[in-house]
Design a protein around this nucleic acid. Structure first.
Lengths: 246, 246
DNA sequence: TTATCGTATTGACATGGATCAAAGCGGCAG
DNA sequence: CTGCCGCTTTGATCCATGTCAATACGATAA
């Protein structure tokens, strides 16, 4: 795989400032003292802006940094040689990208912006250095990684045991919850990904996703208008989740 | 969920000794100097022995330590309220268990011994402490967590895009590879889990797993005798993996 | 030895989601 | 405004895997 993006990288050298970042509580800077935040500020090298469809990193790229999403929306995916794609996650503001590369010094998935986005670049060697000095930073980082493991468990459960409508219900509730904790409406949001990307994430075909959306609309659980979703009956969706296949 | 195992815990207070452990290269002690190993020795509090079917920890248990498998074989699983189970992994000697608990201070899955087993108990607060002092230990730990993320990606790919026979082929090749790197035969091994547990891991029903085993045997890829597997044609299995569903 | 129980295999049938195909819809470029 | 293109919806059909059921196997205990 190529280690260079096809599209020239936009690297803005304006320093990020964790100390002033509104995503503070969501990110690895949570709970740090003023002095510690200042140190972190000097570590976070730069921001990087990406246009819709641009790649932050690709499978095979050398691993050097992890990234915190400042604004925008990403997907990560893995490709099989034969062309099959699995979307492994969607990331929004405050979430961390790139930790897959730590183990082998090489990224193992692709990270693509689904809308114009901006990330903080956190050089990993320096993060490790600093997290040896700052206990709270070390702890935050470990928690972020661990939560990613737990998120993966949930997705395995979804892919391994749930039927199509349960999967979509779980997906919508998860999105709603994440938008909420970012201060957006829990009941109304805009999906940045296509039906095909949702399908890939949920282990379904796009037609199945579309049908499930229609079904939910008929049932009065949601109102769908293209990528715009309004949740009318969250409890209805939640109930679906506890209905085993038999 | 209960925070105590139903069966009394066997806690052997014999100190583990990473410095003399044969799993050294597989584990977080890899690459440490003599002095560093000595420090690690003093951290790893005790070993714990488990009988077949005993639980190392349960979802809901307070998180205090991670565990390195010394001998034996484990599964981890997550349960849905309605009783559905997803096996999220199988762990063998040298592999680390329990990192799911770091994020919330509470374990999110169950870890069960599939045969009589022994683990090293690594109190987590002390591990964090020591990994602030020993860079190599910090790095090893981060790599182990990251590799777990990559493993999960692979499993998502499997659950999201592969058909039954591809899943089982991937599973067998993975097992074979892991036995190999532990010095066992790549071609012949004993599975410690039931067809149902394999099925749960692969997102299939036990009957489907059984049929796939039979099919592989007919094709001459493997010889199956209950839980004993002999791989006769690894390349045959590998070829299956690159055959997309269509 | 025989009974028992958990596990595994195999067959017949049912079904959820995939596949194939044809419209609809909406945004954007010209 | 118009035409195009990517995305989405919907319908008809197919098939891989689930479901149900019967039987076989192997280990263990009596």
């Amino acid at each position: 795989m190529s280690s260079k993006s096809a599209i020239p990288i936009t690297l803005v050298t304006i320093k990020a400032a964790c100390s002033q970042c509104s995503l503070h509580e969501l990110c690895i800077s949570e709970g740090l003292s003023k002095e510690e935040l200042a140190k972190l500020d000097s570590l976070v090298g730069a921001r990087r802006k990406l246009k819709r469809q641009q790649t932050l990193y690709r499978a095979g790229d050398r691993f050097e940094a992890i990234y915190a999403v400042r604004t925008g929306f990403f997907k990560t995916d893995v490709l099989l040689e034969d062309g099959r794609e699995q979307v492994t996650g969607f990331q929004m503001a405050g979430e961390i990208l790139g930790m897959d590369g730590i183990g082998t010094e090489t990224h193992t998935c692709n990270a693509v912006a689904l809308e114009d986005s901006e990330v903080c670049v956190i050089p990993f060697a320096q993060l490790e250095q600093l997290s040896r000095e700052i206990q709270a930073l070390q702890r935050n980082f470990h928690k972020v990684m661990s939560r990613e493991l737990v998120r993966d468990q949930g997705l395995m459960m979804l892919l391994g045991t749930m039927r199509a409508e349960e999967r979509l219900a779980a997906f919508l509730l998860n999105m709603s919850q994440r938008f909420t904790s970012r201060g957006y409406s829990a009941a109304e949001f805009h999906l940045r990904m296509t039906r095909e990307e949702i399908g890939s994430y949920l282990g379904l075909k796009l037609e199945t996703v579309s049908r499930a959306f229609s079904r939910f609309q008929e049932e009065g659980f949601i109102a769908v208008q293209q990528k715009h979703i309004r949740i009318l009956d969250g409890d209805g969706l939640r109930k679906l989740l506890n209905h085993p296949p038999r």
